[in-house]
Nucleic acid binder design. Sequence first.
DNA 1: TTGAAAGCGCTAACAT
DNA 2: ATGTTAGCGCTTTCAA
Lengths: 328, 328
Amino acid sequence: MPNIKDVAKKANVSVATVSRVINHKGYVNIETRLLVEKAIKELKYIPNEFARSLFKKISKTIGVIFPHLSNSFYYNVLEGIEEFAFENGYKVMICNSNEDEEREEEYLNQFVKYNIDGIIIGSNSNILSRYKELNIPIVSIDRIIDEEIPSVSSDNVGGGYVAAKKLVENGCKNIIHFRGPSILLTVQDRTIGFNKCLDENNLTCDIVDLAFIDPESKLIRVCLENNPNIDGIFCDSDTIAAIVLSELNHMGKKVPDDVQVVGYDNIILSQLIIPKLSTVSQKMFEIGKEAMISLHTLMENGTLDDKHKLIPVELIERESTKSNNLTK
Amino acid sequence: MPNIKDVAKKANVSVATVSRVINHKGYVNIETRLLVEKAIKELKYIPNEFARSLFKKISKTIGVIFPHLSNSFYYNVLEGIEEFAFENGYKVMICNSNEDEEREEEYLNQFVKYNIDGIIIGSNSNILSRYKELNIPIVSIDRIIDEEIPSVSSDNVGGGYVAAKKLVENGCKNIIHFRGPSILLTVQDRTIGFNKCLDENNLTCDIVDLAFIDPESKLIRVCLENNPNIDGIFCDSDTIAAIVLSELNHMGKKVPDDVQVVGYDNIILSQLIIPKLSTVSQKMFEIGKEAMISLHTLMENGTLDDKHKLIPVELIERESTKSNNLTK
DNA sequence: TTGAAAGCGCTAACAT
DNA sequence: ATGTTAGCGCTTTCAA
């Protein structure tokens, strides 16, 4: 690997001059520049970023900590992050905390070792003070950890609301909400939005908590059997909704005639099951991109006007809810 | 940010001593060590990895280039890579080439700038010479680019074979293979394995090429209608299989009585559709982990015995094929 | 417009 | 067992 000295020697100039041309900084004669550029090309010289960073104390890389990688929400967000990071010359270091705070800690230490310029965090941990003392620009995904720490979240309250609205407008009176683990803020927010709309219409609903990974179908079946006159169901994930649909099918209930179902996530599955699932779609790629944009301006300007961004969701109406040409 | 000098001053020793204690190298008196460690703790000193790497010319980070991120195969592999990388103190830099060779080039340049210690590549590009001149340990995923470049692949030939075997053993005579784009090596390999088994049983099959993302259901329908006495179908993805199942349902065909279907991938969907899908399962996490293991020994030893690893697949039998208690 | 030289934070050979 | 120091590859101030 050739270094700056080799280039300088080859071009018969000093290292300072070479540095000037590769950084497009300071005065350098056009002829000298050409000479240097030729030498660079011939030697296939690529500046060592470590030496550079050692001096400048920036790394042009950002760190991303997610609680999981194999989860469609996170990897789609990641794709959004990566896209905008690349466009702006940032590298992204990916970290899977595995919901483990120690592991997250270790990653954070890595980050300072490597002069990481910024952090995007999607974890559920609670080491707020650590984030703050790090003194590195940070953006949180899908969760407000602190008034001061910028965030980009999916509009979960709105998502719950719009799901309820659909069900209510379509005439549902006996509603169940099969939701995710209630410790999750996203789940709490969806519940708030969902219940708000029900409240406004003087309705209530039963709530059943399920795991997101491998939701227990037995529990679903029992609930369904205990509530024979159910006519509306909101599920916090399409996977849950798919299970609900299959249980409903076993019970001989017709969807959407007897029962209407709204899912969440709009994963591919939702278009492939029968009936096709009406669902709330989150814009993950956009969340990732917006997070990276926030982080970028935070890193450049040291501050951010629009601290907490909410990315709207969209209700995708398919066959598991009645089509309603009257209201809309 | 305190540096090694600050620690040395605080502990009343030289920087060399501090370096010795943080690296656990060379002799250092137990009392001095304690003194230094105390200073480190008090100052919250974290060594600057750039300075370190500048000297040592290693970065303890590996680069991963994938053609896409939002694809269950890649992110599951990524999770496997990340796991084993973390265990061994490696950071992973993630790059989405977006199937764009220029973009991949740029990433490769980044890699040398950052003294990346090793590369895992899952792309379909063809810049082999570039890989070689980089002179960085490299491992390829799911594809042998060169005899010399180690690889870890899913056993696609075996996957095709085992799918065919099931269908044949279950008595299928009129078989269709709905496959992915035939440019993909993985698709070619599955075809080879599938046809090999058919050959051995004096059978042939029709082949239909489809896109993996958004496969055209009309094409599927037409094929199915044109082949009314089809009794066995192999699909190169569960998504395709789900569409096939839904078309079959529309046509009034019973699965598995009239037609038996085998999918590929074992995504969650395959357990949620009706009937539950029999499918070939790839061990993505293991592929990632094995790739990282190969890369690790390659980086440590400069060489690797077992150059081309094949990770076996597994046929998961569910409801879309007849259960067969006789043969097995 | 260019070059010399100091220094970024660290490691390791050498000296003590 | 510990300290001194050169140097990793680069940027930038200062001087010419």
